[in-house]
Structure formats: C-alpha cells, structure tokens
Design a protein around this nucleic acid. Sequence first.
DNA 1: AAGACGAAAGTGGTTGA
DNA 2: TCAACAACTTTCGTCTT
Length: 308
Amino acid sequence: MPAYIKKCPECGGINLFWNKEKGEVICRDCGLVVEDKMVDFDQEWREFDSDQEAMRRRTGAPMTYTQYDQGLGTEVGRKSDIYTLGSKDRNKFFRLRKWQYRISTAIERNLKLALAELKRVSSYLKLPKSVEEESARIYTLAVQKGLVRGRSMESVVAGALYAACRRHDVPRTLDELSEASGIEKKEIGRTYRFVTRELGITILPSNPADYIARFASALKLSAETQSRSIEILEKAQKSELTSGRGPTGIAAAALYVSALIHGEKRTQREVADVAGVTEVTIRNRYKELLDELDLEKEIKKTKKKKKE
DNA sequence: AAGACGAAAGTGGTTGA
DNA sequence: TCAACAACTTTCGTCTT
C-alpha cells in the first residue's frame, strides 16, 4: 500500500485493501474504489542477501516491450563480412541489408509512435503497468505480423489494450476504451477480434464479477451490497443465466437487485449509465434473476422494514 | 412527476450453409 | 457470401409509486 494513502476519503475508514494486480485500492468499509490509478513503486523482487542483491539488481534499462525495440536490435551482418563473399553474393548482401534497413526503420518508426499513443491512452485509463506491458507486447507482435496494414495505428493500439485488459481481468468496457482513444467502439471491437485471432491469443470471456467493484463504487454502494451482488452472480452462473449474455448487463442487474435488498435503492437509469447498458437490459437480466433465484422475498422484507 | 415495465422494431455481429 | 439468429438498443405507451 502506498504510503500516501491512509484513509478512505469517503468514510474515513482505514480498512483499505490494495489489489496490486488490478491497480485498485478498495475500501473494505464502504466499498469505494479509492484509487484505481495506482502506480506500483515497489521493487518487484526482494533481496535476501547481498549475493541475490547483486544478481537481481539490474544494470541499465530493464528489458521492456514499452521500449520500441525492447532495448535490443539486430542487423544483417557487418560490413567487414563482405570481403569473404563473391560479387554476386555481395550484391545480395547489400540488397538484403537495404531491405532489412527499410523494414526495420519502418517498424521502428511505427512502434515509436504507437507506443507513445499506447502510453497516453493507458495513463488516461489509469491502467496498471502489467497491462501496459502486455498490450505493448501484443502490439509489437501485431506489427511484426503486418496486421496494422490497412488499419489505423490507433485502433490497433486500442485493440491491444482492450485485449490486455481482458487477459489481466482488469476489464474496461469498450466504451471506456473508446472514450480514451477516440476510436469508435465497433472499430476497436473489430481490430480486437482480428488481432487476437491472428495472434492466436485466447481470451476467456470476462467475468461479470470483475466489474462489480468499479460499478458499485461509482454508485456509492456499501461493501455489503457489493459482496451480496457477487453472491448473486455466483448463483446466477450456476443456473447458467450468464452464458451468452453481456457481462456488464449481468453485473449491473446483480448490483441493482443487491441494492434493493439492502435498501440502498438506485434507479435503473443510474445503474444503467454506470454500467454502460440500457435500462431495458437491466430489466431483462433483473427479471431472469428474480425468476431463477427467489430473491423477491428479501426485497419485500426490506420494503417492510422501511415502512416500520 | 418520476420511475418501472413491456412490446415492437432496429442494429451490429456471429454462425452455418 | 448470404440469410438466420441471438443479444442488445431505441423508442414509446402504460402502469406504479
């Protein structure tokens, strides 16, 4: 936990939980996502003795995909090699070198620009470093496979980011990506699918539960409501209500029900806006939830309590 | 008056011939 | 490549609180 966050700004609680992988700090008392914009300043290794310290401490820049050539580079041969070649081979050598040069500078130029854009969008969305790295890796692969041709660089960047988010269970909706990158939603979706297919990246369908914390926080719902909605989600998954449905819609409906049960009513409109779906979708999911898991009693209970 | 509900028509994407 | 299809959205009228 970074030192400068001590208390929850919402409720003043000190029971904060830092989910490092997602880059979120969550208040266990009120469920607020205090800071989802964390940067991890820790070292990622520990030192037990001076030997290990020497081994693990790195000299120079770390190898990273967010550097356009990963800090490394290759060339075709060296000039001094040509004296061992005949004239035909010598021509071939120069031709190859020329091509190598052209291709690599083109790729490098592209990567430089793209990675700058990637960092911009990533920091706008406050994504954790691990996701940024992953998306940079994906993008690099995509460029090397020539997948960017015919598509705008930005859209591929957005697609790579979206894919990386999904892989790390740090879901951001297409809408959020779209807002941050200025690329249309469907365009991102398209390049996302294309890139992942071409690169053979398999991505598990995103889990509705991963959205709960953020949505609940945006709606200022209590921690109990939050954990209740996750229980509801689990039941729903067992009843196979979730397959084939948009995860955001399900998450939204679960939150909506849970809020009703805990007497923290939010309108469908409010929940819908936060989750980026329509009221109708929430209604449909909501109805399915009520049909399948008998929650109506509990809702009535809290209603009665209110009257008292 | 605002919110919840449901029907109907439209949209974008997937799938299978 | 096209049509069928499911999920979701938009729109709108009606009922409920």
